[in-house]
Each structure stands twice: as C-alpha cells, then as structure tokens.
Amino acid sequence: MPEQILPFYVVCDQSYSMADHVDGLNDGLRELHRAVGTDPVVADKTRFCLIGFSGDAEVLQPLCALSDVVGIADLVVSPATSFGAAFTVLRETIERDVGRLKSAGHRVYRPAVFFLSDGQPTDPGTWPAAYDRLVDPAWHLRPNIIAFGIGDADEETIRRVGTVRAFMSQGGLGPGLALHEFARALTSSVVSSGEVTEAGDLVLRIPRTVSGFTALQVDQV
C-alpha cells in the first residue's frame, strides 16, 4: 500500500576520539530503536538509516522501518574523520533509497539528517566539495541537516554543516551526557514527526533546544 514516508539518516562520527563514548551512543540508539520500533504509527511513517564515518563511511543500518528489525548494528571506532566520505556516501544512499521507495509508490518527504561529530575533519581541503553536492539546490532530494558538535568539534564547521539547525555542546557537559541528549533529541524528533498532521502531511519537527547544547544560528535564505 502506498504510504507517506519521512526518512531519517543518522550520520555519526566513529573516529578514535569517540572510543570512550561510543558505548553510550550505541545505548542511545538502542533506546531510539525501542521507542520508535514499538510504536506502530511512527514506525509506519518513518524510516531509519545509520551511517558511521571515520577514514571512510559505511552504511551500518540500511534504511528500514524500525519495527522491522530486532537490533541495529553498533558503531565501531577506527582512525580519521573524513566528513567528505560521510557526505558522499550519504548522497549516494539517499539517492538510491528514495528511488526505491518512490518506485514502490510511496510519497517520500525530504530526508532528515542528524549529523554528529566530536572532532575536526581530517580532510579540510576536500569535504566542502562533497558537502556542496549534498546540499546542491539543483538536487531535488537534498536533505534537511541538523548538525551536532561535541567535544573538539569546531563550532564554525558544525554551523556550516547544519542546514536547518545546529547545536554545539556546552563546555560543562561531559561527552557521555552530550551523546545521551543527542539521542534523546533524535528520538523525540522521529516520534513527533512520525504522526500525520491534521492537514494530512508529515512535518519534520526538531527540538528548538537540547539540554546542555547551545543552538547555533544557521544561515537562513
């Protein structure tokens, strides 16, 4: 049966600097899975994909309804932080996924990306070009990006990556707690976006504030 579908892509830094915190993040993603996967209405309207990146990027959980899988793959750390690899894989994945959903007759809404990094890109010269292709106004599938920076992430870079909202963790907040809040914000966004509005549409809802984070001003056009 043709459905309205809002796809979420969660793109997480899994470079070595995440080693001490990746368990907390995996726990947060398991919570998300449980909350969304056991909510038939939301699971029906949303799809979830997990991409991990370090020196390269890989799809850890291919796009799925969270009620259809009983577990999602864990993030595993490895060297480097290539934003370019993340954005390139993301664009290819979105292109393929949305094509597949549409050919199955579904009405697909603009994908939402939750991007998380705790460091500075190790490919400063090349990632901007990959990013520009991802958000290219001529590409009709360009996603809405919500960017989160924790730890050593650079505020300016995070602001630049976010297209609709960007959040930078505050100094006092430990990375473990920051990741917990990230996962909570993500869960609440998926759950509240997964319910059709009275007008019969799906609308991406993102928390305005995330506890322990500063909301950055994102360029408006």
């Binding site: 449980r34 996967g37 259809d68």
Partner: peptide, 19 residues
C-alpha cells in the same frame, strides 16, 4: 524488547512486526 510498554490499541491495527 525488554522494556515495559502500554498495550495501546495501535498494536491491534497494524500488521504484526518483528519488533
């Protein structure tokens, strides 16, 4: 999935899922 869950009507209105 190891956590308490209210038995909401919605479970009866959708096809059964692995979760």
């Amino acid at each position: 999935a190891g956590a308490p869950r209210l038995l909401e009507l919605q479970f009866l209105l959708y096809p059964r899922r692995p979760m």
